[in-house]
Simulated assay, not measured.
Amino acid sequence: MIELVIFFVILSLTVTYKFFVGEIVMRTTFIEQLVAYAHQDASVYLLTADLGYSVIEPFKQAFPDRFINVGIAEQNMIGIAAGLAMRGKKVIAYSIIPFITMRCFEQIRNNICYQNMTVKLVGVGGGLSYGSLGHTHHAIDDIAIMNVLAHMNIVAPASRYEAQALIPDFFSQPGPGYLRLANTDETFSYSELCRPQLGKAFEIIPHDEHLIIATSNALDLAYKVQTELAALGVDMGLVSAHTLKPFDGDFFEQKKATLKTVITIEEHSVIGGLGSIVASVLQAQNMHYVALKVFGIRDVYAHTAGNRKDLLELVGLTPCVIVNAIQRNNSIGAV
């Protein structure tokens, strides 16, 4: 019995350490930006449902009267956030993604979105970031859930660089918002000429005809795919769709005369996520001639626990699988 307890303690510490190292950059950026925002605006409040330790302390120490830990009560947290917003406060509610989006969905819909309250939901652990903790902690349907809510804006930065540029404007926007933070490898660097802007598609590698569009922590994977395709003589651009709602339809409009192929990659279900959003925009703009291929997690749950890398291989989100699928696909064969 003692050996079993020791095993689970070591496993828990290992999981926590790996996730903390992998995502600390993104979460640290969030809290740095939030503290700076709160120094400028005395109406900013931070709520948490007994999560975020080793992250939220700078805010708690700087503004103890504007920090509320509601305990393990996410539905109650949303009610409190809505009440504060009704009194003119600007509220940030923080938790891991399944808890901040799914456990309290009805309260988000009725208390925040229906009344168009200025409450920002900040969720950590996008995609399979919390892979080792099992399917209850996998965030593979959050974008779809948040996207269906009226007034809800969705921002999913792919890196610390994007988060630094986007979070201040995200905080300052009126109305509801959802910020998706995730475990990222950050395997590439941005050109100094590239500067992400909230609400605008971020074209990292320009191309007028053929594009790979990714969001959140799938951008690293998309970059690897783009690089491997280039080595095979297949030239494609790379775009970060950090603002998912409202989506930048003007980006496609500007390429209407030249765009031929769009490939989307996301660490999320293919139902209701980036691929669905892009398909909807292309249809609305009558760009039916554009070949669209969507890569993400199929209509399944992972019935196993493991690290993010292993789970991505399990669901087929690897450079090798995607590159081979693109080469086999006749509709994109002319890329």
Rank of each mutant, 00 (worst) to 15 (best):
I96N: 00
G83W: 11
V124P: 00
Y53E: 14
I112G: 01
I56S: 03
E57H: 13
S54Q: 11
A82Q: 09
V122G: 01
D65P: 07
P58M: 08
A93C: 10
E74K: 04
Y94F: 14
M77T: 03
F63R: 12
R66P: 02
I72C: 04
C113D: 06
C104S: 08
M117T: 04
P98K: 00
V55R: 03
S129Y: 01
V122E: 03
Q75C: 09
Q107D: 13
G123T: 10
T101S: 07
G52N: 05
A82S: 14
I72A: 06
S132L: 09
A73V: 07
T101K: 02
L128M: 05
I96G: 00
N111E: 15
P58N: 09
A81K: 08
P58C: 07
I80C: 07
V119A: 03
L133A: 04
Y130G: 00
V124W: 01
G134S: 04
N110Y: 15
V119N: 04
G79P: 03
Y94N: 03
I78V: 15
I96M: 08
M102C: 15
Q75R: 14
F105K: 09
H137C: 05
I112C: 01
G131F: 01
V119S: 01
I72K: 04
F67P: 05
M102N: 14
K89D: 09
I80T: 12
P64H: 10
A81L: 12
Q61N: 15
R103A: 07
F59V: 10
L84A: 06
D50W: 11
N76W: 10
A93F: 04
I68N: 06
G126T: 03
C113E: 07
R66H: 10
V70E: 05
V122I: 14
S132K: 08
A82K: 06
I96D: 01
M86S: 15
P98Y: 00
V124T: 11
Q75V: 11
P58Y: 03
C104K: 03
F63E: 11
D65I: 04
I72N: 07
Q75A: 09
F67V: 10
F63Y: 11
G127C: 03
I80K: 11
V119D: 05
G52V: 03
V55N: 11
K89A: 10
M117F: 03
Q75W: 08
T101F: 03
I78S: 00
S95I: 04
I100G: 00
Y130E: 00
K89S: 11
T118V: 12
I97M: 11
G134Y: 02
I72M: 09
D50I: 02
Y53C: 13
G71Q: 07
I96V: 11
L128K: 02
D50Q: 10
G71P: 02
I97R: 00
G52Q: 02
V55S: 09
K120I: 09
L51M: 12
M77V: 04
V91R: 05
